[in-house]
Design a protein around this nucleic acid. Structure first.
Length: 393
DNA sequence: TTTGGCGCTGCGGCCACAAGAGTCC
DNA sequence: TAGGACTCTTGTGGCCGCAGCGCCA
């Protein structure tokens, strides 16, 4: 299993090349082995460090996700990224918001396992050592949950207190996002990153094999959760409300369109105000493509109940996942946060439309007649000029 | 230390209507 | 099956109201 890696476009990184794996020389490196002083791809890392017990104990860290050339030194929770010292300085000196990001020194990847390390959650034993031993570990696991999106988030972020009877609100004021939680510290970038990860199916296998479950397992999981006195996972909101639990879980699955084998995952309409942002204009000719290629459910809704659940492959082959990761990275590089104008003609019309206190106002008859006169004159002029088509904006 | 007032900032809703999308015949 | 008529939905920008926050007395 590969670690989800969100590279951040720090000025300290990039440069157009990625350090290749020191072993195979073909794949991009993913981890840095301090003992070997070697940069390895995931495949070679697994192969090399599974060779013997000594190698098994090699201390490894992730390669910086921004420059992908140096070992990571810090983990930024808000960016959900492991960065080297240089990229960390560059990225987090960019603006005051970035400076507020909570960063912790990156911890080495523990005893060799297919990264990321699984977080064993013993529901019935919250005090188990597998979860957290202290606050530091708690923070680390939280960071890991962001960094290693393949993992389920640790209970801290994913729980609510039964006694508080809070629905869809966790203790950290995070936002529940399809069973995951979007941290309050996350700005638009992170939010969109998470969205893109969903859209790209990056969350497809965010559960470890032993933690992946089907509906029956989920029911069992919820029952276990509900049997717990202290914590209840977000997926199992409302004790005794199996329908709610099932819906939440179904929501989670719907986000993970890859499991269904859909060409596109279930799209979710996220309303983000971009009024202050520069607008990029999408040529209207593209709209037909967009409309045809992405059938959307009703605005603000997720199609949860239409049709039976499709069979889901439990695992993707490594090549498939690698391709998906590459596709995601490409998409991330070209991602734009500007407001996208889908219909330039509508924009032009809206700008010329009469307003009253900012609201669109009805056009008076005089204005309509004037418009008709102008349009007629324009058509006439176009005909005399030999043009039979009135161009759209 | 607490409370109330004030200013600033950001977000969401509202409006009309052309154009796209879908349905029916 | 193609195409016209019809209905429904979407998207567009600027202003206002409101909530949240910080500052000060």
């Amino acid at each position: 299993m590969l670690k989800e890696r969100n590279s951040i476009g720090g000025s300290g990184g990039g440069g157009g090349w990625v350090r290749p794996c020191d072993s195979c020389r073909s794949a991009a490196c993913a981890v840095y082995c301090r003992a070997d002083s070697a940069y390895l791809c995931v495949g070679c890392d697994a192969r090399v460090h599974a060779a013997n017990r000594v190698a098994l104990r090699h201390e490894r860290v992730w390669v910086c996700e921004a420059c992908e050339r140096a070992p990571a030194a810090f983990t930024c929770k808000a960016d959900a990224a492991a960065l080297c010292a240089s990229c960390d300085a560059d990225v987090h000196a960019a603006n005051p918001l970035a400076r507020r990001h909570h960063r912790v020194p990156v911890h080495p990847i523990p005893h060799h396992q297919p990264p990321p390390p699984p977080i064993n959650i013993d529901i019935n034993n919250p005090d188990a050592d597998d979860i957290e031993e202290d606050d530091d570990d708690d923070d680390d696991n939280e960071a890991a949950s962001w960094l290693f999106l393949n993992n389920p988030p640790p209970p801290k972020n994913n729980i609510i207190n039964n006694n508080n009877n809070n629905n869809n609100i966790n203790n950290n004021n995070g936002y529940v996002y399809g069973g995951e939680v979007v941290d309050e510290y996350l700005d638009l970038v992170e939010y969109n990153s998470a969205e893109d990860q969903y859209n790209n199916g990056e969350y497809s296998d965010h559960r470890e094999p032993h933690q992946s479950y089907d509906d029956d397992d989920h029911v069992q999981y919820c029952k276990q959760q509900e049997g717990s006195d202290s914590v209840v996972p977000v997926q199992c909101l409302g004790s005794g409300n199996e329908n709610q639990s099932a819906q939440n879980f179904q929501l989670d699955l719907e986000f993970d369109g890859s499991k269904h084998g859909y060409g596109y995952p279930a799209s979710v309409n996220h309303s983000v105000s971009l009024s202050s942002m520069e607008a990029g204009i999408v040529p209207e000719t593209m709209m037909s493509d967009i409309s045809n290629s992405n059938t959307r459910p009703t605005k603000g809704t997720i199609d949860l109940f239409t049709g039976p659940a499709l069979p889901m492959p439990a695992q993707f082959c490594p090549m498939d996942r690698e391709a998906r990761v590459l596709r995601y990275r490409e998409k991330r590089k070209t991602r734009k946060f500007e407001k996208t104008i889908r219909y330039a003609s509508r924009k032009a019309y809206a700008e010329t439309r009469p307003r009253i206190k900012g609201r669109f106002a009805k056009r008076s008859d005089v204005e309509v007649e004037v418009d008709q006169m102008f349009s007629t004159a324009a058509v006439m002029a176009g005909e005399t000029a030999g043009y039979g088509v009135v161009p759209s904006f």
